[in-house]
Design a binder for these strands. Structure first.
Length: 169
DNA sequence: TAGCTGATTGACT
DNA sequence: GTCAATCAGCTAA
């Protein structure tokens, strides 16, 4: 469950698609190819946000994992909207009933108003928050190669909720 | 300083 | 299926 509080409105969604990125041994990981500032975050304490700009116009949200000194993160690729759907729809310029509010990394950051100033934020305290759902559901998880990258494409580090209509692609 | 790249999206053929 | 938008940070010179 990912929760965002921005400018007075709360928006939240169930995380239905992620990709894992490892340390320098993973050629696609920003721990290996991104600037020092990002790398420092990777090696920091888990539970923090890593937000970056991609293609000059979109943001992607990562959760740093592992203890300090262990690089690794999880890219949040897609959400199933749970709360604040109207707010998300307004930010995305789509009807609230749309299935396309948060089914992509750039889309969910726009819907939850996540920007670079969330970079390094503590995900255990909010205003950006990742929490266990109140009523955990048993779901089937599928895995496969990561999407949209040009390196280390053979690693099957993408995970999504099978049968969810909110995953990307 | 110039040129290139990219963990994307949306519009178009 | 193809392609443009748009920019920080890297590399080459």
């Amino acid at each position: 469950m990912l929760l965002s509080r921005a400018r007075g409105s709360v928006t939240a969604g169930r995380i239905v698609e992620t990709e894992a990125y490892l340390g320098p041994e993973d050629a696609a990981s920003h721990a290996a190819i991104r600037p020092l500032a990002a790398r420092a975050l990777f090696y920091g304490e888990g539970g923090h946000a890593y937000v970056f700009r991609i293609y000059g116009m979109h943001f992607c949200l990562n959760a740093i994992t592992g203890a300090a000194g262990e690089p690794g993160c999880v890219l949040i690729r897609a959400l199933e909207p749970v709360a604040g759907v109207g707010t998300m729809a307004r930010r995305r310029g789509l009807p609230p009933s749309s299935r396309f509010l948060t089914n992509g990394p750039g889309k969910l950051t726009q819907a939850l108003a996540i920007t670079l100033h969330h970079n390094g934020a503590d995900l255990t305290r909010g205003p950006l928050l990742i929490a266990a759902p109140d009523a955990p559901r048993k779901v089937a998880i599928a895995s496969g190669p990561r999407i949209g990258i040009t390196r280390a494409t053979s690693l099957r580090l993408r995970f999504w909720v099978r049968n969810s209509s909110y995953v990307s692609r």
